[in-house]
């Protein structure tokens, strides 16, 4: 009985991501999987939210990412880094989602008035005064809109580096491109974002149109 209690406990406390994933892969260990979810849920959600600009979709995508992680557990190579595997799954799901939205002709991603769109609606900081909160919301909305105007390749580099704080080397590994390319994409993304922000600041209202890359890049593996 003590053994049956100790093993999950030890696994929850001391397992690295790779060990946990190996357990999921080989033994379908639910505790190890729950541990992985606990560790990575927030970061995956962050990636999805920044990539799609939609908190509700991001939650669905996060769930979908972990579902897909379990379904494709056998294709994980235990020598590889778990985070790379997970980021690829999440990114591919984001690209799929963006393509689906584009196909449907939805404009909610770029529409502050859209029904589910605004992360700004949800990102209420409980502390500041109402007027301060309004300013924060407007700024956040501006950034979100500007970010969504970037191409997916540029946005991916920027989100992974700036928000998820991956090293350029790690991003290169996830996207399977040279590190130099990641950096040049990043520089380009920053320049473009700066440009879009300036544009948005100049004219307050933006017409509803989706600015999505018609051909999003595909990350290989883990599909």
């Amino acid at each position: 009985m003590s053994r049956s209690l100790l093993i999950p406990l030890a696994s929850a406390l001391f397992l690295s991501d790779e060990q946990a994933m190996w357990r999921v892969q080989s033994q379908e260990d639910p505790h190890a999987f729950a541990r992985l979810m606990d560790r990575w849920r927030k970061r995956v959600y962050g990636l999805c939210a920044r990539m799609t600009g939609d908190s509700h979709r991001a939650e669905d995508l996060t769930q979908e990412t972990f579902t897909r992680l379990f379904v494709h557990r056998k294709s994980y190579v235990p020598t590889a880094r778990f985070s790379t595997f997970l980021w690829r799954i999440a990114l591919n799901l984001c690209y799929d989602e963006l393509r689906r939205v584009q196909r449907r002709g939805e404009c909610s991603l770029d529409d502050p008035q859209g029904e589910t769109s605004s992360l700004g609606e949800v990102l209420v900081d409980p502390e500041p005064a109402p007027d301060e909160r309004l300013v924060q919301r407007e700024r956040a909305e501006l950034v979100r809109t500007a970010l969504l105007r970037l191409s997916e390749t540029h946005r991916t580099a920027l989100v992974l580096r700036h928000f998820e704080q991956l090293k350029f080397r790690e991003i290169a590994e996830v996207l399977e491109i040279p590190e130099g390319t990641v950096k040049s994409r990043m520089a380009e993304a920053m320049t473009q974002l700066n440009h879009h922000l300036n544009l948005l600041l100049r004219k307050e209202s933006t017409p509803c149109k989706t600015i999505l890359n018609p051909n999003p890049p595909k990350v290989t593996q883990a599909r």
Binding site: K42, E59, R139, F163, L193, N194, L197
Partner: peptide
């Protein structure tokens, strides 16, 4: 670019 980075930081992520 630093300005852009500061601007990016003004988009906090809502809690899941």
């Amino acid at each position: 670019w630093r300005g852009t980075m500061r601007a990016l930081n003004q988009w906090p992520l809502p809690r899941p």
